[in-house]
Amino acid sequence: MNLMLQGPPIRARATSLMALLLSLSLLAPTLAAADAPGGPEESEQPTFTEALWTFVLDAPYLPIPWPTETLTRNIPLEDAFGKLEFEVAGINVDMTPTKHTVFLWLSALLCVLLFIPARRKYDKQGVPSSKGANFIEALVLFVRDEMAIANIGRKEGPRYVPFLLTAFFLILFMNLLSLVPYGAAATGNLAVTGALALMTFVMTQIAGMRAHGPVGYWAGLVPSGVPWFLYPIMVPIEIMALFTKPFALTVRLFANMTAGKVVIFSLIGLIFLFESVVVSPISVAFTLFILVLKLFVSFLQAFVFTMLSSLFIGMASHAH
């Protein structure tokens, strides 16, 4: 409190106050983690590192705004959905929804709520009659023309447009939801990005087998014109190449989204680390900058994932 008294002039103080509010809203769910059923048992303050991982990692509860001391209430998802756990071939699979599962569903719900009504916004000539529908159409056309048709081809390309569009918007909304206070980055989870990359992998194989036939596709994995004695080298390399593509997709998206979260946490955390409100203007300025950057990165990573997916599908269906 005496910090406030001997602190900077009014204007900087107002900024500091905003910074405190922002940092509280961003970190409130983290601070509340201590009270969470899945969190540490004692109600002691979490360490800085623990708080960071709470901010970034998945959790079995969903933090929502609540007028308590920490401004947060953690809803245990097990209570809301019930325990969904079963064993398959000796592996224990816990299907209980987690925080990231909820944000995955929120993103899917956003897609449904935004795009299903969009088709009714077309008049008789097939022209979008509202700004929203126009904007959606611009994105749809971009995915169709610049990704599907440019990378896969005019004949086969349009077939994969729904897949690419769904991937693009699901990823985009998951990325954007991570920028909202109390939001979590579902795309900052390897399980989510891995599953999405798996979808691309499956689509790529389907595209390849569609274009060349199941036998022709697998036979065509090794480039023609390679001398037979190179096969022992070429075959493992080509099979590895098959899996490195989705692996790169998985890690790229995960790393980008997680890195953003870590940077934002670290910048806000500086205030608490130095235990000084003087740091807050710098922290807030940088956080704002990173948030804007993340807004851009959200679009960019959704674009990159979709673009590379279309590129892989195109490579598989052309090949050789």
Binding site: D94, M95, T96, T98, H100, V192, A195, L198
Partner: peptide, 18 residues
């Protein structure tokens, strides 16, 4: 660490959404 439950949920959600 990869949560197999979340992988399955992501695949299910994606396919249903698609």
């Amino acid at each position: 660490q990869i949560n197999p439950g979340l992988v399955i949920w992501t695949i299910v959600t994606f396919v249903v959404l698609l």
